[in-house]
Amino acid sequence: MSLWDYANPVKFMRLSGRLLPVASILAGISLAVGLVWGFFFTPDAENFGSTVKVIYVHVPAAMMAINIWVMMLVASLIWLVRRHHVSALAAKAAAPIGAVMTLIALITGAIWGQPMWGTWWAWDPRLTSFLILFLFYLGYMALWPAIENTETAADLTSVLCLVGSVFAVLSRYAVNFWNQGLHQGATLSLDRQQHIANVYWVPLLVCIAGFVLLFVALVLLRTRTEIRLRRLRALEQRERLA
């Protein structure tokens, strides 16, 4: 059985119905473990104090903000090329989650930045890029409900997602050029673990896993809702015609 079979709404509903509780429970467990561990059972960093603990929310949220947009881009491409409705609806379902993740990253960044840099907001390239990404999410989310015909809405939002991706990356470079920032470089890559001590690293990984699972659970739930809404509308339309 090919992977594409799951793009069939019936099969998707059956599979996602089984996956949803598993993903939800795993997300709950890993988030609880990761956050409690990170907040209460790690030492304060010598030069950051206890504020460093905001990374257990900030870093996973920032990663998800970008990854969710990438997932929307892939889903949009699948819709444009193969016209699987589930794919388009999954992109639609993911957008508000991505927007909230971006917002969380921005807010926790501000909370962290205040004691560190002495200001809630700085026009630092990273912060600015996330603000721009947030604008792209808002535009994408605004376009969906504005178009009546659902297939046209899926088409046009997909094209916007494609073009938006290119310009989001372009903006990132433009902003880098415009202002070299204060934000520390990425400390989180598998081959550069030395930047961050193991006591912080392990609970952070648990938190990241928790955020990924939370996203999976939410996007499954929201996609299922979108599919049911679509079916409801189709039923209503048929009733009017009959």
Binding site: L135, F136, A142, L143, A146, F167, S171, Y173
Partner: peptide, 27 residues
Amino acid sequence: ALTVGLRRGGLLLSLLVLPLYVPTLIF
């Protein structure tokens, strides 16, 4: 082109286009 079919597309049009203007404005 994205908003051509919409009745009140003007405001949405600005919302969609302005983020795309960021790199041009910066440079």
